[in-house]
Every structure is written in C-alpha cells, then in structure tokens.
C-alpha cells in the first residue's frame, strides 16, 4: 500500500469510527430468513398519468429497503449496503428509449446514498454509452462535486479478459477501477430472445461484447457473465424499476404492451429477483391472453442456470424464495 492509499484508507476508517449511530436493524430469526428475500413494493400513486411522483416514490423505496433489512430508519438500511467513503455505481438501463430507468428513482437512490455517507461526487450513474444516457434524460458529468454520469465508452474497458464458463469479456473500468460497489437498477420487461430482461441481464451493460451472448436464449451466457469474479463481488444490491413494466415485445419500447405496475422489486439475490419478476410478467401475459414464454420457446432458463451448482449466484427455487409484498 503506498502513502496515498494508506492516508485515504486511514481517513475512511477514522471517519467511519466517528459516524453517528443509527438504531440497529432487527435481527429476524424465523426460518423464513434462511430464504432469499425479494420485496415487491407497489403504490399505484407513484405514477400520475405519465409523470412520477417523486415523494411517493421515495417513500416506496424506503419502505422496500427498510422491509428488506427489517430496519426502522432508511439510512440505517442503506448503511447495510454501502459504507461511507466508498464509490458507488448506479447501473441503469437506457436501452428502451422512453421506457428506460426513471431518473426520479435514480435521484431517490442517490439521495439515500448521500445520507448514508457517500459523497455526491462518489456516485456514478452509468450505462453502456454516453449517448444512451443522454437519450434517457441524464446529463453527462465527468467531474465536479455533483453526482457523476457517463458511459463505458467514456473510460473504456479493463484490459484483462474475464472468463467464466462459455463467456469471455472485458469489463468496464467503471466497475473494475472506479467503483467499490454497484447498485443494479434494471427494468422489468419482456425480452424477445432471452424471455425476460431484469437483474441478471442488466449486467450485460458492464461488458464489451453482449451481442455475442444472446445465443441459446442467453443460456448459459447471462449466468456466466454474472459469475465473473469482479461482477459477482461488486454488485451489492438490486432495485428493479417496475414503475412501468413491459410484458411483450421487449426489449424495445412498445407502448401497447406496457402496464403501470407502480412498483419496485428489491433485494440482494438477483436470481431470486429475476425469478420473481419473470412470474409477474407471466401472470400479466396470461391476463392479456398471451401464451407463456415457454410456449414461445423463450422461457428464461438462464435464471435456473444462474442458480445451479456451477454458478451459485442465487436462488431460483420458488420454495426457497421469500417474496414479501408491500
């Protein structure tokens, strides 16, 4: 460790020691706590016609995260995800045009991160390309005191090839070099090839060659990419933007197949989240008279692969997923 790193770490540790203490979160002892927990939080009022009600969304987010960690205070819950002094990336999804990640949700998350001790300038909103972020309504910002925002194209990819199973990719420097941890903020939507595109597939935005991994409906590639050590290690939490969701015709924005879900899916286990999100999409498809994804030969088998013994990314067995609806 050089002098600069030593000083930086010392300052971080020192500041952490003097942080004000929030009430500790309750420890849940029930058998249910052994399961992977997924919070499905809904409030139809977060979406008023086409505009998002920021205060209601923040409340919904707090409820979801506090419920997940069983905490009375939202900041206390966030402190279980991040530590003061860290650099945190917010991986959004800007590939669906008007159907992309809502800025209001990203702002709400950034606000809570700040309150949990993350400096504004240590928050990086990112996706594949600057162009995509701009089209999604985000403003590109590389420096200064505010929240940063830029795409992989701004900083490039780390030179070491990451390899797992059938996948081999370069990973964005945002993830490898710049961030200590990542909050994954995917969408809840149908995908014409992979079946659904939710938490696991959103991490395709971290690699240089996602176009190579749609073969065989993304199986096992999506699970393999998520198993790259640097991705497995750094993705801290997932908050699915399901304010509006899409049950068919994805990933492109297709207004005729979208519905107001008015909610968020929250949790650590992105396999369990994907399984839960997939079932929500299937229910909606059934309600709309569409065939199950399996009948269209695009059942998202990669979710089960992600949960298998080779990958161990999470839980795809519904009996081992605790879904809490609020």
């Amino acid at each position: 460790m050089d002098r600069r790193k030593f000083l930086k770490k010392s300052m971080i540790l020192g500041s952490a020691f003097w942080l004000p203490r929030f009430p500790a979160c309750k420890e849940k002892k029930s058998a249910l706590s052994e399961k992977s927990r997924v919070i499905v939080a809904q409030d139809p009022a977060v979406l008023n016609k086409r505009s998002v009600e920021g205060d209601k969304l923040l409340k919904l987010l707090d409820n979801a995260v506090q419920t997940y960690f069983d905490c009375d205070h939202p900041v206390d819950a966030w402190r279980k995800i991040v530590q003061p002094g860290e650099v945190i990336g917010l991986k959004v999804n800007c590939l669906s045009g008007r159907g992309s990640t809502h800025r209001e949700l990203v702002e709400a998350i950034a606000e809570r991160l700040r309150q949990a001790g993350i400096r504004e300038s240590d928050i990086i909103i990112w996706d594949r390309l600057n162009k995509d972020l701009e089209e999604c309504g985000f403003k590109i910002r590389y420096k200064g005191k505010g929240v940063k925002c830029f795409g992989n194209d701004a900083v490039g990819f780390a030179p070491n090839l990451q390899v797992f199973g059938q996948a081999g990719s370069l990973v964005t420097r945002i993830l490898t070099n710049l961030c200590d941890g990542i909050i994954n903020i995917p969408l809840l939507r149908d995908h014409s090839i992979a079946g659904v595109s939710i938490a696991l597939k959103n991490l395709f935005g971290a690699i240089h060659n996602p176009n190579k991994y749609h073969l065989n409906k993304g199986d096992p590639y999506i699970a393999d990419v998520n198993s790259f050590p640097v991705i497995r290690k750094k993705v801290r939490f997932t908050i699915v933007d399901a304010i509006e969701a899409q049950y068919h015709g994805g990933p492109s924005f297709m207004p005729q197949w979208r519905w107001k879900f008015g909610g968020l899916l929250v949790g650590y286990d992105r396999v369990a989240i994907d399984y839960t999100g997939w079932r929500i999409i299937e229910e909606k498809r059934k309600e709309k008279g569409l065939p199950a994804l399996k009948e269209e030969d695009r059942e998202p088998k990669y979710i089960f692969t992600a949960g298998d013994a080779d990958h161990q990314l999470g839980e795809a067995n519904p009996l081992k997923i605790e879904t809490i609806k609020i």
């Binding site: 590939l95 014409s192 176009n211 492109s252």
Partner: peptide
C-alpha cells in the same frame, strides 16, 4: 413487424429488435 428486421447476410439470420444490433455488433 413491430420494427424488427431479419439480417440475411450470414446463416445466423439474426432477428433484431429496434435499436439493437446483430451478433456481429
């Protein structure tokens, strides 16, 4: 339909959604 295209350059014949790319990238 629905703004999709089918590439006919190589045997992969990628069906590509709007704003997406084929296997070749």
């Amino acid at each position: 339909q629905h703004s999709q295209v089918r590439c006919k350059l190589c045997p992969r014949k990628c069906v590509i959604d709007d704003h997406e790319r084929g296997y070749c990238g």
